[in-house]
Write a protein that binds this DNA or RNA. Structure first.
Lengths: 127, 127
DNA sequence: GTAACTGCAAAATATTTGCATCCTT
DNA sequence: AAGGATGCAAATATTTTGCAGTTAC
């Protein structure tokens, strides 16, 4: 529960998310920082950045964890529930700026929802 | 691509899904049939039953694969897209008999969607 | 008989944990 | 100085693969 420190790892990872508009898979980050950062560090920094409301995560279609920058979340409270879209051709995933209205579910208290869409992204449709 | 055979493994697994109304995690099946079936066999039979339109699968909140009986799917074509609900207290997951209307997504061809809900199930709410 | 199925061991993949050391404040 | 962060090795957990032997049709 400590305060996040401005370390090399945090700076490097944050920088990637600044430049990348789409979501990034942890496995991809591990490859990108192969010789620079240890994978354990990567997992831990991402976890911390999510706790702090800077990133949010979701699971892609093969159970791999993806991270993306939050737009309106705050520490320990990720309120922005938008769908995520993963392309079957290029494998990339991205956040969609839409709000999906969910109905009431009787006899159940829904706390969190995750909508994952699979298909072809605009780039791959053109090819 | 062969025809599915009526083997002991298939019979045992199908029987579980007959009796169980909720979804079942592969990890749970592996434990249940610990001494009876090999885990490799379990993975392979489930995969085949899904191909044949008898079961469908989805990923739960920790990336674990769940299977449940299909109600209206046919071989190689799983058309029934309903949400899945996973309880944070008891961990059980189930299919919900609701259809969620999705909007059109511009510049994208959505082929498949998966809505996963997290919260408390009716049984756990009572306790 | 033959294609499909099974079990076992081993590999592959993703993630977590323990611990000693180093860095930030 | 002290609590947090890092790297490395090893452990977990889930799923996949190869292959030899068995079974269903």
């Amino acid at each position: 529960m400590g305060i996040i420190r401005k370390t090399k790892s945090v700076a490097l990872l944050l920088d990637v998310f600044e430049k990348e508009s789409k979501a990034i898979a942890t496995t991809d980050l591990i490859k990108r920082f192969d010789t620079v950062l240890n994978k354990t560090t990567i997992y831990r920094v991402l976890e911390k950045l999510e706790e702090d409301g800077i990133l949010h995560s979701f699971l892609g279609f093969n159970g791999i964890k993806w991270y993306a920058k939050c737009k309106q979340c705050v520490k320990d409270n990720h309120t922005d529930t938008h769908p995520h879209f993963q392309c079957t051709s290029c494998g990339k995933a991205e956040c969609l700026d839409v709000t999906i209205a969910l109905p009431e579910f009787p006899d159940r208290e829904v706390v969190f929802s995750q909508l994952l869409l699979k298909g072809k992204c605009n780039t791959c449709l053109a090819n």
